[in-house]
């Protein structure tokens, strides 16, 4: 629980969550909501924003309490804080739209057990200043939103021929039913993971080709 982390430029804490350490496509965390409620772009966006809110809230509280909470009870405290923010989100969504609450179902409550949130609290917020923790949460949360949105968009376009409920195709479009079903979530996720790994591998080979032999690997 020291503050001895290497000082890094503030923007990097934000940017790393978007691409390099994207929670879904690189760390493969939070699979349960990513697969279960990404059947439409609207559900995916709502779930992503709810997670973003919980992540920012819990990271802020955990970071500001990091000198106050003893090691032995830290996990219990984190869970308490996370569960509180999840309950807040649950009420907020019910107040905004009951239909949305029905569509997301039990997965709102299940944000509590999203490894991403506990992971950021334990691995990052409890060791860093409030400001850095906020940037980290915003970056990771935005990365999660973008990932869910890209899953949801593919599934909704193929499955129902629409995006955010707006029809994209002519009358008589044949939806790919499997894309709305859970199996479609796995297929879409696999497709995105394939793309991400292919891009990263290509980049790594290019960098390796550029760097002179023996140089220390500082490139990312």
């Amino acid at each position: 629980m020291s503050d001895e982390s290497v000082p890094t430029p503030g923007t990097d804490e934000f940017v790393k969550g978007l691409w390099r350490e994207n929670p879904v496509f690189v760390q493969v965390l939070g699979m349960c909501p990513a697969l279960a409620v990404s059947n439409t772009a609207r559900n995916a966006l709502a779930m992503g924003l709810a997670t973003l809110f919980v992540l920012v809230g819990s990271n802020l509280v955990v970071s500001s309490l990091r000198h106050f909470v003893p090691r032995q009870v830290r996990i219990a405290t984190y869970i308490l804080v996370i569960a509180t923010f999840v309950t807040v989100v649950d009420y907020a969504i019910q107040a905004i739209s009951l239909d949305l609450h029905k569509a997301l179902g039990a997965f709102i409550s299940l944000i509590v057990v999203n490894c991403l949130i506990l992971g950021r609290a334990e691995a990052f917020a409890s060791r860093n200043h409030v400001g850095t923790a906020l940037l980290d949460a915003l970056g990771m949360g935005t990365g999660f939103v973008l990932a869910l949105l890209s899953l949801g968009a593919v599934r909704e376009i193929l499955g129902s021929g629409s995006l955010f409920g707006v029809p994209l195709f002519h009358e008589g479009f044949q939806g790919w039913v499997v894309m709305i079903l859970p199996a479609g979530g796995f297929f879409t996720l696999a497709g995105w993971l394939l793309l991400f790994n292919w891009l990263r591998e290509r980049r790594a080979t290019r960098l390796a080709a550029l760097e002179p032999v023996g140089a220390t690997g500082g490139g990312r």
Binding site: F68, L80, T87, V88
Partner: peptide, 18 residues
């Protein structure tokens, strides 16, 4: 101190939102 403090804070927050 930590558990009770955090618990109280969380409880208040939930009640307020409710």
């Amino acid at each position: 101190r930590a558990m009770v403090g955090v618990g109280l804070m969380c409880g208040l927050l939930i009640v307020g939102v409710f």
